[in-house]
């Protein structure tokens, strides 16, 4: 290949990728511009790029009104809660599984691997039934009768902890394999107990994998619009993405309040935290995707 041809090819590649990037980012540009419109302006516009005639900013503020603040806060609480627990479980279980010898270890490992390929359809509806029949919660008696259990109960956003977390246990285990045992043995000789060995010796050396787990679970929990959507129908107890999901599914009905700019405004706000997480922890998120791909 001649040099001229190579440069033309490079230029063609850059232009092609630019077009692709525009296509990938177009819906975000569209919703940002759409949110700057008023409702009537938007429905009269009908263009590929809804450039506003008159700028309005109040659509972005819906998330900070009386209806918007509780779901926004719930999303933050839920994301922090699950990020914390996922990291903790991954570290404790991953460390013990990687380093300790005990009976039944193989069985646990098989359980971890099998749990990752169980189709979620097998647990979706039964979980719903179980949540509604859980004893002692939501007005249920010890038989799980009489009330509605965790349905429409905000606790449903915090209590369940399924085997999705075991993926991170597996990842932490794998990452422990590349760490020589000498450090822990030295620490033990120096009189470190289990907790000290873990927090002072292991964790500082495993920071990258911790970042992988934390960033991925934070992103996943924030974006999990479906769980709150399925279990909770009061906006106050729901999360922001689930609230947007309620608005988005009601858009399908041709009648009713089809306030697109409001939806876009809320969407723009709710995408900021995941976007920040992604931009700051991009390396780790991509590493997580690639390593679950390669090792899994």
């Amino acid at each position: 290949m001649s040099k001229a041809m190579r440069t033309t090819l490079k230029i063609v590649w850059v232009i092609g990728m630019m077009i692709l990037v525009l296509f990938m980012l177009y819906p975000f540009i569209y919703s940002f511009l759409g949110a700057l419109n008023t409702k009537t302006d938007f429905s009269n516009l009908g263009t590929l790029l809804p450039i506003p005639k008159k700028l309005v900013f109040r659509n972005f503020l819906y998330a900070f009104t009386k209806t918007g603040i509780p779901p926004l806060l719930n999303t933050f609480y839920r994301t922090s809660w699950y990020t914390f627990w996922n990291v903790l479980v991954a570290v404790l279980l991953g460390y013990v599984m990687a380093r300790y010898e005990f009976k039944g270890k193989k069985l646990f490992l098989v359980f971890i691997i099998c749990s990752q390929v169980v189709p979620s359809v097998l647990t979706m509806i039964p979980s719903f039934v179980m949540m509604s029949k859980i004893p002692f919660l939501g007005g249920n008696n010890w038989m799980g009768m009489g009330g509605h259990g965790l349905i429409n109960n905000p606790l449903v956003l915090y209590l369940p902890f399924g085997w999705g977390a075991l993926l991170w246990v597996f990842l932490f285990m794998q990452s422990m394999k590349s760490l020589p045992k000498d450090f822990e043995e030295a620490a033990e000789i120096d009189g470190c107990n289990f907790r000290l060995t873990l927090t002072k010796v292991i964790l500082p050396m495993q920071k990258p994998i911790l970042a992988v787990i934390a960033a991925n679970t934070a992103l996943g929990t924030w974006n999990d619009w479906f769980t709150p959507f399925m279990y909770i129908n009061r906006i106050k107890d729901s999360t922001l993405p689930a609230y947007i999901g309620m608005l988005a599914t009601s858009l399908q009905e041709m009648s009713g309040d089809r306030d697109f700019p409001k939806l876009f405004g809320l969407s723009c706000v709710s995408i900021i935290p995941p976007l920040l997480i992604f931009l700051f922890f991009q390396k780790y998120i991509i590493q997580g995707i690639a390593s679950t791909g390669i090792k899994g």
């Binding site: 692709l20 819906p27 938007f42 974006n223 619009w225 969407s267 995408i271 931009l279």
Partner: peptide, 20 residues
């Protein structure tokens, strides 16, 4: 980064654009 970004927004958040 750009091709990955559609995935960091929940499906419910971006579907409105398509419906519009």
């Amino acid at each position: 980064t750009s091709v990955y970004i559609p995935n960091i927004a929940a499906a419910a958040i971006t579907s409105g654009v398509f419906i519009a």
